[in-house]
Design a protein around this nucleic acid. Structure first.
Lengths: 245, 245
DNA sequence: CAAATAGTGTCTGTAAGACACTATCAG
DNA sequence: CTGATAGTGTCTTACAGACACTATTTG
């Protein structure tokens, strides 16, 4: 090991990251929303090499001078692309190999964000990369994505579909105020199949992660619907069973 | 951006990783087994700076010349420490911040391995680091671990306990041949509470991830027990509901 | 025979799915 | 009134948990 005789101070003073061959390390985001009755993912068209001109997940390198931690990098990227600051964000999975980036061995921490489409003000012009929403089909998007981003997206879609089965997570895909019918529609869109209304409502009420906005209802040419919001400070609720088969 | 006029070839030829401040990137392993009626985790005593002399999770840097991908790094580390080559291995989560390692901004891909204790031949002597098993209590181990390894271990324990509730995962903590009672005992050890025998057996049989070793039984001073093995090629089975409350 | 563990059968409560029912608005 | 969507009640079925029962060995 060669540092046997040093104190920790002496060791650290002599340590130089650049003396080693290290992998490139980045953070990429899979940002989902629901709009126009379909699940969408945010993609950027790359304005610079490598993979110039191809569609890719938003992301980039860790800024070791300013980012306190990985979540900080992810939040910064999210803010840069969407202007949103406090959505649902969780780490998805790491992807790393010698072949996924032509610049060399590279690894990425993929994140997974859900935002309500009303929140979004896409950032244009400033960067060279144009961001836009793309509908997500069975296992991904109808495009060849840069690097291994197709695989990352497919993993994220699978994780989302899986979690939707037994968690309250889809509530984050809606605007802050919504009806139970809105919420059910989002579940159905993400799962791709209908859900029984009665069973759905029983479970949501029992999960107790929503609160009525007392006195507020949405009116239409029918019976008005109670509006709800996510109970503040409430993290994801896990249901005791899966959503109706 | 600055590469607008280059071809991708020209850009890559001019690219130099060392021109940037990059984080240190490593892979750490949380290796679990069950022995002596308790869950244990493998720890190493660090023989080199930093955190010299402290207990830590086994792990290390990515070898970009030889490791094909992150799983490759994890498998290599696992082999170096335990001699085991094909156990259960899954990625846990990434951890990265400016403060977790005194050498600077660092990130790690934490992995999560399960092995049967009969498999293990701990590697001694070769390295400066001594590896040994430590019992795992409610949320971790009775030691101050190096870096943020205490947090990583706690996360891994939580994930294990959670997955045990509804998956066939604990089967990988046993020797290759085992009885249903053995398997139930492992579930009980990891969960820290008893499980009803009848319900347990119904679910395991229904999950259909085991096969009888026909004609083989374990004998004692009682009725002999049928031996089982994990059905080959069978990945983790998800039960439709949690193990007995 | 007793002791010990393996393995099964039966009952019951809970909760999800199916589906029909009622409620409340606009026009 | 009709049409539309919101919201509820009832019945049935599936299944997990409790627990008692039977089975098969050693000594």
């Amino acid at each position: 090991m060669g540092n046997a005789d040093l104190t920790e101070q002496e060791y650290l003073a002599s340590y130089n990251v650049h003396a080693f061959d290290v992998p490139l390390t980045s953070v990429d985001l899979v940002i989902f929303t629901v709009r126009e009755q379909a699940l969408h993912v945010l993609l950027v068209r790359r304005g610079a090499h490598p993979a110039k001109g191809q569609w890719a997940l938003p992301g980039g390198f860790i800024d070791i001078r300013n980012d306190p931690d990985l979540d900080g990098t992810a939040l910064r990227k999210l803010r840069e692309k969407t202007g949103v600051t406090a959505p649902y964000l969780e780490q998805l999975q790491g992807f790393g190999s010698s072949t996924r980036d032509p610049r060399g061995w590279s690894a990425t921490f993929a994140y997974f964000a859900l935002i309500g489409s009303s929140h979004i003000a896409l950032q244009h012009g400033a960067g060279a990369d144009a961001a836009s929403w793309h509908p997500v089909g069975a296992a991904g998007v109808d495009l060849d994505l840069a690097f291994d981003h197709g695989v990352i997206l497919a993993t994220a879609v699978q994780r989302l579909r899986n979690k939707v089965e037994y968690t309250s997570l889809p509530a984050h895909l809606l605007a802050p105020e919504f009806t139970l019918s809105d919420l059910q529609r989002v579940y159905e869109i993400v799962l791709g199949r209908p859900i029984d209304k009665s069973a759905f409502r029983k479970r949501v009420k029992e999960g107790d992660f929503l609160e009525e906005i007392t006195g507020k209802q949405r009116h239409g040419s029918n019976r008005p619907a109670q509006l709800y919001r996510i109970r503040s400070g409430q993290p994801t609720v896990f249901f005791s069973r899966t959503m109706g088969a």
